[in-house]
Write a protein that binds this DNA or RNA. Structure first.
Lengths: 157, 157
DNA sequence: TATTATATGTAGCCTTCGCTACACATGTTG
DNA sequence: CAACATGTGTAGCGAAGGCTACATATAATA
């Protein structure tokens, strides 16, 4: 029976390795935390879209666009109100605060860049749109800039 | 007071628009669902790493690498056992099933491609590693292929 | 305006990932 | 082998996103 190589010992715990492991942990922590913001961004993005096209954002429409029930929307909106991204009044539609509008703008901007970038790479429209939905939330400023640069290079030949 | 543009009417509900909205909803649904697999992939990836380097994967080591407590690991591992990705015995370390090993291999492969791709684009090592952690789970087969192709083009000068 | 259709809200449930605190098993070492 | 360190397990909590079922409010229309 294969027993422990380095038993009960927190793996090869030299400092170099420890730092690498801590870095890895930090990346995972960041990614997990990002997940909370992702949903917030999706909501404000959709809300901004709806306000632009319909003049207002109603819970049912948000629900339809996100593919959830209106109950889920109501609950999540409550969180976003707590976080001061949107505001509501009972039985009235949903508004963005200044912070919410800013976040929506940022999200939309990033989203567009990612889509454009993927298309420039030769990815189909459908896949570009689908993948961007997931990717956009995990792109650092540095990477986003690299995406933009690539698009520019492609356009200027 | 601004009243409804198109009151009580599920937005401009012509068929064309309806299809677009349904597509958007579907993308969001997929992205949300992906989140469950993400965590599974992170776990099997780390477990595979640990088995390679240490000969075994212990809960504490997984915890350290993912930046969570061992309790969280134990709980999540229970789910992965239910999903037949890993197997355990009380007070023994953690093993991958065939399905788990396969998933780990796939995840690792994708992860490497994404990192390599980002670096080829000119992104720093740190950012490439950090962003890949989030991006890798949202890259479709088609996009992954585009990434690989780009890397190949870069290497062949 | 009364009826009906649609939107919003509330109650209460599930699941998942987090956590702390404490109990118990296993390994290491004097 | 006893004592101590370290790893594993369990109880019980919170926050979030999801849901169904039902109640209530608002809007459209006969």
């Amino acid at each position: 029976m294969a027993r422990r190589i380095s038993p009960q010992n927190p793996e090869s715990r030299n400092t170099t390795d420890g730092r690498r492991v801590e870095q890895q942990a930090e990346n995972h922590r960041r990614t997990r935390k990002a997940h909370l913001s992702e949903i917030a961004e999706d909501y404000v993005e959709v809300i901004a879209e709806l306000i632009d096209s319909n003049g207002e954002a109603r819970a049912v429409d948000i629900a339809r666009r996100l593919g959830v029930t209106h109950v889920t929307v109501v609950k999540t909106i409550a969180r976003l109100v707590r976080e001061d991204l949107v505001s509501t009044k009972p039985y009235r539609s949903i508004f963005l605060t200044d912070a919410g509008r800013q976040l929506a703008e940022k999200a939309r901007h990033r989203h567009q860049i990612v889509v454009r970038f993927l298309k420039s790479l030769g990815v189909s429209d459908a896949a570009a749109n689908a993948d961007a939905e997931g990717i956009e939330h995990h792109v650092s400023a540095e990477t986003l800039q690299a995406f933009e640069q690539y698009c520019r290079r492609m356009n200027h030949e």
